[in-house]
Write a protein that binds this DNA or RNA. Sequence first.
RNA 1: UGGGGCGUAGCCAAGUGGUUAAGGCACCGGAUUUUGAUUCCGGCACUCCCAGGUUCGAAUCCUGGCGCCCCAGCCA
Length: 565
Amino acid sequence: MSEEKETTPTNFIRHIIDADVKAGKNEGRVATRFPPEPNGYLHIGHAKSICLNFGIAEDYQGTCNLRFDDTNPHKENTEYIEAIKEDVRWLGYDWGQRLFFSSDYFDQLYGYAVELIKAGKAYVCDLDADAIRAYRGTLTEAGRASPYRDRSVEDNLDLFARMKAGEFEDGARVLRARIDMAAPNMNMRDPTLFRIRRGVVHHQTGEAWCIYPMYDFTHPISDAIEGITHSLCTLEFEDHRPLYDWVLDNISIACHPQQIEFSRLNLEHTVMSKRKLTELVNDGRVQGWDDPRMPTLAGMRRRGYTPKSLRMFCDRIGVTKSDNVVEMGVLEACVREDLNDNAPRRMAVLRPLEVEIDNYPEGEGEVIEAANHPQNEAMGSRQLSFSRRLYIDRNDFREEASKKFKRLVTGGEVRLRNAYVIRCDEVIKDAQGEIVKLRCSYDPKTLGAKPEGRKVKGVIHWVSQDHALEAEVRLFDRLLHHPSPDTATDGGGFKDQINPESLSSLRGCFLEASLSGAQPGEVFQFEREGYFCVDKDHSPAQPVFNRTVTLRDSWAKIDPPRKSQ
RNA sequence: UGGGGCGUAGCCAAGUGGUUAAGGCACCGGAUUUUGAUUCCGGCACUCCCAGGUUCGAAUCCUGGCGCCCCAGCCA
């Protein structure tokens, strides 16, 4: 019952902020922002950024804005906006009144572009996309000046106004910064600032605009307008920082946030790019953004991951600038830790094997009180029905086995969890030799008491046949075979790595009756099996549970599961 | 010598010239256990990419290598 909340470990960004606060920079104020583009669902990598930005705001008595970076109406929509808001809230963060859109600043962005033009620092370029690319040069050769680079301020002002007025077709012209075509940093070779997108309806601004600003122009200005002090982003934007600074240094805005870059999260056996996740969804390789195998927050929520476990994970992985691939084990340890404390215990038999207790009176039964948590009495108890006919798990019986196998064997005894010790007297098989039923006997003196004169090592779970609820239980495995599918050397892309057995659905599972009122989202520990949550497909008539994660299983190391699932 | 970044255990990660080189995950023992769970206790880097150098003293400073990542969208 770990009540102590984990304190967020420090990192290089916090060191920088500490120094800034101490030096009185920004009057000691700290303001961050989380700036998703609404073109997909949030994933665990975004959670890292959310926890960083909102976490810093909390710890420094600062603020963190939620800002939708919505400058590309082509790819964005309101479904994503709503999903992102829900995910941030679910993770446990509150942006209060500080919800913004880059599109809120379109007028100002246009105005700053005009400033740049007037200062001779931006120009309208008539080159098409291919030509711009050709003029840009390569990584090792300088670019050449566009023929339109030296247009007069008047012409540029006129043309830019007409771009805005919708006089030109998509792609006909762009507004470019006038910086340095020979810069070793490609981002400084006269980057595009505005492009024409006519006839698209923007989810926020409708048809008000037919020119849209680019990220490199929008982001620094949006940050500055909001008074952000520390603009945290991932490493691939490091090369953009000179441009971020250039924009703010060349317009009439006083605020100049500091951009600091950290490395993105990579998780073993999954992919973290929105493009690839979108592909999985669109190709039907998964059942949607909230498929429990997806590393999306929606998927993980459906799978049974808790907000606390994700926050704990983000604390544990740290924030640095080094490339990293985090093992799934870290994530799993986080959910187990949270759920071990907080998930009520239940019994469920996933691969049922019939047991009949011959010396238990036919037609009778009893009710047994069982604790909801072995270490936490405050979690109360529930009632279990015991009777002559039970189910146990097929994996908990072997006709013969070595001493290491502590479960039920022919002629051997085992403890039924919360109930009696039983002995297996006879194994009944069908014509194919398949075990269909076990005839057992029980020791009536072993309810809540140790058996006399012998030791019974094993404990297995069970449910009463007459009282059980039939259910579907879904088990999940890694989505992709390779630990880092992006760097898999063999063959093509990450899709070659897809694990066709990542989802297995077990039907005809039996649950203890107390689970009948379970609601979607509720999480339980099915003893000896793992943590399971009620799926959104669930109904009382057709229960569906998802396995969030198994329990740690040291037996599996001794006796590795043989494709048995 | 195109530019930018990174290199501490199997994985993540502290460390900022003097510490026995934190911590977590994983792993390996062992104790307790009506969950092979939990909990507890113990182990797990004579060495920090490599090679030189500076220094009484280097993971930390200097020099030279090596390896990996990012950048040539009118995406973000």
